[in-house]
Nucleic acid binder design. Structure first.
Lengths: 288, 288
DNA sequence: CCAGCTGATACCCCACCGGTATCACCGGGT
DNA sequence: ACCCGGTGATACCGGTGGGGTATCAGCTGG
């Protein structure tokens, strides 16, 4: 009846991603025939056709699309199980906190210092990552907790507490006329012809269409701003990565940006609970 | 390096739940020696000791506790993958909606009727379940979407939209003196000596301590109220399961109960999106 | 001190996974 | 029209490893 093995899921994901048995087999370091057989057996056991073997190529059926998404979730959960278990076995338990490189140093330092003063505190490893990477790190267990920014990051599947709510600033090339202004509005910054908004890759690594440059990291973005090719709007506390060639101008009517502490739903440990408690206290201290 | 198979996870969960290799092997329909060997091999591959083989019995190490929780998540995710894929392959796609038996018929009927009128609508199977069971149904893929009640149901790991916010009523035995009142307060109902609050089982099937009767289903609870052994406070719209021997009295200062439509975070289908949209419209219509 | 229970070890067998060789089918190039 | 390159499917074979039986080893309690 049931009894899918993760091996079968890994095989299917490889084939579904390559849409080619031969290449998928290469990626899996195996020959093509056993892979074909394994996928056929998987389809028989599920009683569902996952792939359309059209001559000249393979394509996913709707059920195959569903199974691909679910299989990725399972494989990430397996990775998370291994990582979290190994870390739980260490003599020194630690929390891994993921944060975007360049996010507010002050806030993070305050959080870590306040946490370290607690009796239940464990060591915290700070894992710097690129924008939008936190979700994946939490899902596959490489991180236990992350600092994220609403409304930029989707919070689905995560629990979170707000730490700080603040206004946003536009980061502009110092040479641009708008850089001389003391404040700006969203209308003014959202459609500057010579500073189009940069485009980030989607989860499938393709880029949305648009006039802006394609970027994959914050450092690329900072470089592009310095070169006068784009602008961006970010929470005021994130301007830590401001360069000499950058100018930050408050955007008066930008939506308030909220910095949150987020962690995978359903996971609980005393060390994490203490960190969450610390974050709540910091939020109250900030409000006062 | 990696490459845990679900078989190994199933073995470990069985041993961790039975805390006894022989019984676990019986549950798995296999002999004890290969099970012992498989667990040892699992521990070697993880590089982590999961079990303490204290003579006369087995116990979980802290790392074992972590791995047990993670392994259960993985196995549920595998079940969900199979169920959702099989359903996605049906000619007639359907949504399975889980709701507590006896929750508001009117609201549900209104939701289903409004949804059926939409062009993207698919058939909806209503899966009646016991209180608190919705979360598990969503997690292992037996249901796609559920109707739940905040603040009674934990919403962690789920996305949700509110449908209805309403006051709560106390359900009392008709023969009890309090049943004659036209309204009550939380202070009055929370400590009635002869009507102690019923106790529900925890996830591990043990009961919290207390004077109230132990219950496992809504029908048991309804029976106990009719017998004059307990009382309960529920959202006003849930009184569909009121019996002739029951009396509903508004509790003026009870926290507002919110009925929500909830679904697993990260899952998306057009049919589900349309149902969510319908729920939002109903909420607005109710507010007006 | 023995009976009885626990999990661990020794050994064997065969199912199944993966490899090699080959086929069947199609499309596109002269 | 022909053949060639490339797809995935089929046939067959060998080795690994998962599972079975038999047995051991260590503790416990009567």
């Amino acid at each position: 009846m049931d009894g899918l093995e993760t091996r079968e899921l890994r095989y299917f994901v490889a084939v579904a991603e390559e849409l080619h048995f031969g290449r998928a087999a290469g990626r899996l370091n195996m020959a093509q025939p056993p892979l074909s057989r394994a996928i056929r057996q998987l389809e028989r056991r599920l009683g569902v056709q996952l792939l359309d073997r059209d001559r000249r190529g393979v394509s996913l059926t709707p059920a195959g699309e569903t199974f691909l998404a679910e299989a990725r979730l399972v494989l990430d959960a397996v990775d998370a199980a291994v990582r979290r278990t190994r870390r739980a076995a260490l003599a020194k338990p630690t929390l891994v906190l993921a944060t975007k490189a360049g996010a507010s140093h002050e806030l993070l330092k305050e959080l870590l210092d306040a946490y370290a003063a607690r009796p239940q505190a464990v060591e915290i490893d700070v894992l710097l990552c690129e924008i939008g990477e936190q979700r994946q790190l939490l899902r596959d267990g490489r991180a236990d907790v992350a600092i994220m920014h609403a409304p930029f990051d989707l919070m689905t599947g995560l629990e979170s507490v707000e730490i700080l709510t603040e206004g946003q600033v536009a980061i502009l090339p110092a040479s641009h006329p708008l850089a001389k202004r003391s404040s700006l509005t969203m209308a003014e910054v959202s459609n500057v012809p010579d500073l189009p908004i940069a485009r980030w890759p989607r989860p499938d690594f393709t880029y949305p269409p648009g006039p802006g440059p394609e970027v994959r990291s914050q450092s690329q973005l900072a470089q592009l701003v310095a070169l006068g090719r784009t602008l961006l709007v970010i929470p005021a506390s994130s301007r830590a990565w401001q360069w000499p060639e950058h100018v930050a101008v408050p955007v008066t009517d930008a939506p308030l940006a909220t910095t949150l502490l987020a962690w995978p739903a359903g996971v609980q440990s005393p060390a994490l609970a203490a960190l969450v408690e610390t974050a709540k206290q910091i939020k109250e201290r900030m409000a006062a």
